[in-house]
Every structure is written in structure tokens, then in C-alpha cells.
């Protein structure tokens, strides 16, 4: 088997033979990513309505559905409405702390079988299996969103304790709640925020995955006919909550 040392040594040997390469540099990274991300947020404190409008347009362009509610509590009837229109009842959601509030009682009162995911990992294998079966059987998945990228209509979700990967993946209908602190205008700005998350690194209890979600799952593999929901959700609903969580 090739070892790391052999592998890298061969690369170095070949690199040593190159002649006359053009000058080239990688992209300029923000020197202080956290400050740069803060600066973007400050700018957007005024411009966010335009960014939100562009996000809505782009999300709808890729087949997503946009809603706007004044407070988190008012998201519950929207979620229940989505479920009712589709004849769906079973909902799984991120843990209340990761969404910014507990919608489960309100959703249950509106006739849904709503279950929140546990706030952290689960030691019992049997319990993990039960939870997976629950998620696999659920029709609706309710999550938050860490970023909403206006340029592309993209929701960015970080995994972590209380934010399992499958909530936005296995159910047919994904519903994401976000507020204006999540808005960025462009992929480049999203890049700055990603760099700042990485700079925060060890101080947070992040999960291993960051997912960019741009509309519902799609394929055109059969005769180039656009078909939705091949593996992931066939619908994506983004609910904008005007009152930022905790603010």
C-alpha cells in the first residue's frame, strides 16, 4: 500500500520538474472572518428587505414556496395549512431550542402528530432506530435555517445537537423557518459567513455537515423531464419570521 510519505514525495518530485508556470494565487480570504461577517450583517440591517424580496423570487424560481409571518407563533397555522392541503399529519422537527421556540403544542392542537428531535445524541441503539423509523415515516420535516442566500434562493442548514440531518431529507415536505439575521445577498457573502463559522470552530458544538438546499429535490435523468422529489423532499417551504428569534 502506498504511504502518505511516498504519495506526497511523488507529488513533490513531479512538481519539481515544472517550468515556466504562470503566476497564480487563490481567492482573497477575509483576514478577520468574524469581523467581515459582522460587517455584512450590519450592512444588511438596512438592506434586508431587498435581499428578502430577491430570496423569495429565486426560491420560487427553483420551485420553493415562500411565506411571511410576524412571529414564530404565527408560523404554526401556516405549517398546519401546508399539512392539511396535502393530507399529511406526521411531522418531525428540530429541537425547540434550534428553531427558536416550541411549536409542537400548537401544531398538536391544530391536529398534527408533531414530534421534536432530542436535543443531543441518543445512547440507546433501539431508541435511535425508533427515531429513524419515525423520521422515515413522517411526511413533514420542520427545521430552522442558518443562512438564506438571496442570489440563489438557497437555505443553508448546519447539523448539530437537536438538528439532525434527516429532518430536512427524509420527509416529503420540508418546511424551514428563518429570520432576517439569516439573510445574505450573495454566494460570496455566504462564503464569508462560512469562513467565520470555521474561525469560531472549536468554541461551538457544530455537527459534521453543512447543507445548501436550493429548492426541492429534482432530477431530469429520464428524457430530461423535470421530476421533483426523487430522493429528498419534493416540496420546500420557507417561512420568514419577521421578529428575529430572541430579538
Amino acid at each position: 500500500m502506498t504511504t502518505r510519505a511516498e504519495f506526497i514525495a511523488r507529488i513533490r518530485a513531479e512538481m519539481g520538474k515544472t517550468r515556466g508556470l504562470p503566476p497564480a494565487a487563490p481567492a482573497r480570504r477575509p483576514e478577520r472572518p468574524r469581523a467581515a461577517a459582522e460587517a455584512i450583517r450590519r450592512e444588511l440591517a438596512e438592506r434586508w428587505p431587498e435581499a428578502l424580496e430577491r430570496f423569495r423570487r429565486e426560491l420560487e424560481q427553483v420551485g420553493g414556496v415562500f411565506y411571511r409571518v410576524p412571529t414564530l407563533a404565527e408560523a404554526a397555522p401556516v405549517v398546519a395549512g401546508i399539512a392539511r392541503d396535502r393530507g399529511a399529519r406526521r411531522l418531525v422537527g428540530w429541537h425547540a431550542a434550534e428553531i427558536g421556540g416550541d411549536l409542537v403544542p400548537a401544531l398538536a392542537a391544530l391536529g398534527l402528530e408533531a414530534v421534536s428531535m432530542p436535543p443531543g445524541e441518543v445512547a440507546s441503539a433501539a431508541e435511535r432506530r425508533r427515531l429513524r423509523e419515525l423520521v422515515a415515516a413522517a411526511e413533514l420535516g420542520l427545521t430552522g435555517a442558518d443562512l438564506a442566500i438571496a442570489e440563489t434562493g438557497t437555505l443553508v442548514l448546519r447539523t448539530g445537537p437537536g438538528r439532525p440531518r434527516s429532518t430536512s431529507l427524509l420527509p416529503s415536505y420540508h418546511i424551514a423557518l428563518f429570520d432576517r439575521t439569516a439573510l445574505v445577498e450573495s454566494l460570496a457573502q455566504a462564503g464569508v459567513v462560512l469562513e467565520s463559522w470555521h474561525a469560531d470552530g472549536q468554541s461551538r458544538r457544530d455537527g459534521a455537515v453543512i447543507s445548501f438546499i436550493t429548492g426541492p429535490s429534482r432530477t431530469a435523468d429520464i428524457e430530461l423531464t423535470l421530476t421533483r422529489g426523487v430522493h429528498g423532499p419534493k416540496e420546500v417551504h420557507a417561512i420568514f419570521v419577521e421578529a428575529p428569534a430572541g430579538g
Partner: peptide, 16 residues
């Protein structure tokens, strides 16, 4: 639709 950034195996605190 999906850009998935994977950083190693499951972390402590993650369900899956």
C-alpha cells in the same frame, strides 16, 4: 439543489 459540506464522521451530540 444540494451542496453538501461533509467534515469528517458524526460529531459528539449528533443524532445521526
Amino acid at each position: 439543489v444540494y451542496t453538501t459540506l461533509v467534515q469528517g464522521p458524526r460529531r459528539a451530540g449528533e443524532l445521526e
